[in-house]
Nucleic acid binder design. Structure first.
Lengths: 221, 221, 221, 221
DNA sequence: CATGAATGAGTGTTCATTCAT
DNA sequence: TATGAATGAACACTCATTCAT
């Protein structure tokens, strides 16, 4: 009845496009990321994802074997470790180093990254192997790389030895605080907090890195 | 299904227990916390919560009007700000202060507290008002109280002025890192990490608070 | 929670009034009539009837054994044949007779009567024995009584013999039309239609009863 | 449970039939009419309708959005005004006219028609717009058409002017009485009453239409 | 590859009814 | 008598998934 009462309406269904599998897979994973990160796994229906991806439900099952498979493929895809490691420029002063570190860290904390971390927290129990892999393939190497860079700077005298340089990861933890803030606060408030945390973080690093005035600097100027 | 293959298994009918509403409400909220924090809101079925609470589904609806109401009541209940503020003992040395602070912070990071924070992150969009209230009634006051305690210690000379004493909250952020670790890692690994982070945090504070050796102690404003 | 947030509110529960059974039964049947006739049997919940009657659900079961029993008792009560038969005044002219008949018929078509007939139609399948009894105890006797009164009037010459006087029931059928109208149309429209039908009915009877002008009055059997 | 005690009972799985939507819609509407008119809206479960229609519950929701939508579609479909208007044959005598009118009216009072009217009465409050539409699109035009046909017959002298010819609708009201009888009485009794009313109605019209003997007929023979 | 039609198993919720007090 | 608490059975509806085309 409802169909017969309406005039054509047509909806421009674009009639059964036939696309290469990789394209379809990408469409699906994009749509899945959007839905899953907005609503979580259980609350995201296959119907909604399909609609979002612009195809039929059944077609999802042509490209993936189940909802879980989509979820896993999606996480696997988006959690792939970002390769680009910003190498510190040779002639930077410690202050410039801090600034570039902060800017880089917070630049990477995109909404999508936040959504992914959130999803990881939400659904950790569902895909523990992925979480573990993410830890080991992304986080731990990143930490090690960063620490070794710091160590090098210290050994060249660019940085003074402090409590922070020994456990440098802790200096990046406020980033996590920023991320969690983005997850919890509503849009607008989140933006404000983001900047506050970022600048406080920057200040903190600037101060911590500075050798205590009047104190003998770390063995050598 | 697994239950139906077994014989009765005693069936534990225990007749119909009649309990005061507050007791039932507590049973329900406990069960709800367990389920919701393990699976999230959408994936926790009323049937499972009822089973968990040891009563019929229908009885949940005698005490709460809906699944949402249960969720909200549960969060409201458990997020009530913990009042007990550990006042720093008068004659404590800064090192003792740090130790008691660390022990106190990590002592409060119980599995239940982690589960609640996780839930808050997971379902923030469902109950933004509760998140906001939690921020304003629990987090912000706690921060302010802590900062003012630090300020007092600084003014009495118990603590030297450093970058950390100015923005003291940042020194507690590793706690959040510990919490997120608990959310993401499987049980066993989580326990290990917990201790590692805790002790690293403790060391950091000890070092940061210690006046640089050989340097004139904070003799000046 | 909801209870604890509100102040007393008290609601003046009038605290467990203890009333004689007949009073309670009446309260229940009144409430049941209201609900059942408004919503039908299936859509009227025991909870709603109890609320309407100002008592607890459980108390309904003290006075009646089931929802069906309430329904049946209610119909039995309200369908009891109305005894008051308006005897035609001796010296009335045929026109006065018609007027009093019409007024009487339509006066009895109260909203409650309409609701009951409606209910009878709606739930006839549920209580066929009541419908039958109503037919036999109320409708048929009423018809017979009316026909015999008409016959008497005819035999005394007060009414002329016409097609209508032979099957007098048919002359009251427009009343049913009025009743159905009340069931189908919304309040306001129903009121208007009611009057229209009533007056058309009156006119019809006046004309039918009138001997054809110029024709020999019912001079013959 | 009853099914599980029996052996398979063949189970009639017949695999999964794939039918065009219009066919399914019809099956559903037929089944819905049967159930709704037998039990009313509230007492007809979707499960029963689905069983009746020979498909799964879920499939109902593929073709209709809700139980209400089914109900409305069903009424809309069956209440569509029947177009076939029996034109009176040119050379008919008044008596023949009456006979064809009666036969036609009562022929259309099929069980399905009765069920629909009953449903309309039962659930008028649920779909007042449909009731109104039915009145305006079906009943009122039918009345007007009939009256105009009568007027024409009167003007050609085929019918004499009487009280009935002025308000001809009233002469068809006994049909409503027959309909209500069908709703209230059990099958068998209903059949008997149906014929009685029909013939009484026929007689009445025959007599009313006949010019009073000895009286000057309406101006001309 | 793509889809509309189909379904079994489940969802949250309501109900008539019973029980303990 | 009266009731608040409790429940099994049903309810309308949704879901992930499959099948025929």
């Amino acid at each position: 009845m409802s169909t017969s009462t309406h005039p054509p309406l047509v909806t421009k269904k674009t009639a059964r496009a036939r696309l290469p599998p990789e394209v379809r897979r990408q469409q699906i994973l994009e749509a899945a990321l959007e839905k899953f990160s907005a609503l979580g796994f259980a609350a995201s229906s296959i119907a909604a994802i399909a609609r979002n991806a612009g195809m039929s439900k059944a077609n999802l099952y042509v490209h993936f074997t189940s909802k879980d498979a989509i979820f896993e493929a999606m996480l696997t895809q988006w959690l792939r470790p970002s390769d680009e490691v910003p190498t510190s420029q040779p002639g930077q002063s410690p202050d410039e180093l801090v600034d570039s570190l902060i800017d880089n860290l917070y630049h990477r904390l995109t909404p999508r990254a936040v959504a992914l971390i959130r999803l990881l927290i939400v659904e950790a129990h569902r895909v523990p192997h992925l979480v573990e892999r993410w830890f080991e393939d992304s986080l731990v190497p990143a930490r090690i790389a960063q620490q070794s860079r710091v160590d090098k700077l210290v050994s060249t005298g660019s940085l003074s030895v402090t409590a922070l340089t020994q456990d440098f990861n802790f200096t990046t933890i406020p980033l996590l605080y920023a991320a969690v803030t983005q997850m919890l606060l509503p849009e607008e408030q989140a933006c404000v907090e983001f900047e506050i945390i970022k600048e406080a973080h920057r200040n903190l690093l600037h101060q911590l890195i500075k050798p205590v005035p009047g104190a003998p600097p770390n063995d050598r100027k």
